[in-house]
Nucleic acid binder design. Sequence first.
DNA 1: TTGACAGGAAACCAAAAGGTTTTATTTATA
DNA 2: TATAAATAAAACCTTTTGGTTTCCTGTCAA
Lengths: 113, 113
Amino acid sequence: MLHLDTHQPVFRALADPTRRAILKLLSKAPLRVNDIAEHFEMTRPAVAKHLDILEHAQLIATEKKGRERLNHLTPAPLAQAADWLSFFDHFWDQRLADLKTAVETSYDRDENR
Amino acid sequence: MLHLDTHQPVFRALADPTRRAILKLLSKAPLRVNDIAEHFEMTRPAVAKHLDILEHAQLIATEKKGRERLNHLTPAPLAQAADWLSFFDHFWDQRLADLKTAVETSYDRDENR
DNA sequence: TTGACAGGAAACCAAAAGGTTTTATTTATA
DNA sequence: TATAAATAAAACCTTTTGGTTTCCTGTCAA
């Protein structure tokens, strides 16, 4: 079963620690590229590339005002990542259910002995 | 504030679609490297490298039985990723709260007019 | 005990990622 | 209107990533 992986842009965006830090930064307030770059030990063009990747994942959007461009968070796609992870919540639950069943079964055996 | 990024191994592991697919595979049952490789259009060594990365993130563990080695899921570290994402749940809530406040404030102003 | 099977490991490769510096381009402002 | 500010864009570089092939080692079974 090979379908298009809609999760890829988000997970790819989240793979880099700088990008994760940028998302947290932008959760406080929209910022210009230069403002963001001040928070990191790298040049503005490097930060701009990270912003491109975040924008491609639709985790941020930009608004051009004159010669400035504000980057603001659009965190909706993070729900995709959360959804993917939630599959394993179920797995946890299932493991617990299996364990419970096993325990009860062995208890039944004990009772009938 | 620059601290060690404990999330990095997990997010890095999740960045690749093959690795995400492997995790889902292993959620059904433990498998040998060869079994896993059959599910993908790549060679066994390629899969083995993905397994190395998953193991480094402690998302899987292996058990050696004779000449075979079983890979099984140890999904606990996924909670780290979920935790990180949950920060943005709060952000959502805050946005909603802000919106609610804004609406009520404007409603108050309307009332007093 | 000799194959065959399962996996480990090394060498290699192309492309992508993450960064740099340099050079425009557009927009405010003194 | 000339200059400074903000960013965009291009060229380039190094390291990492994701894959390959080839070979080696250990274990089971005929």
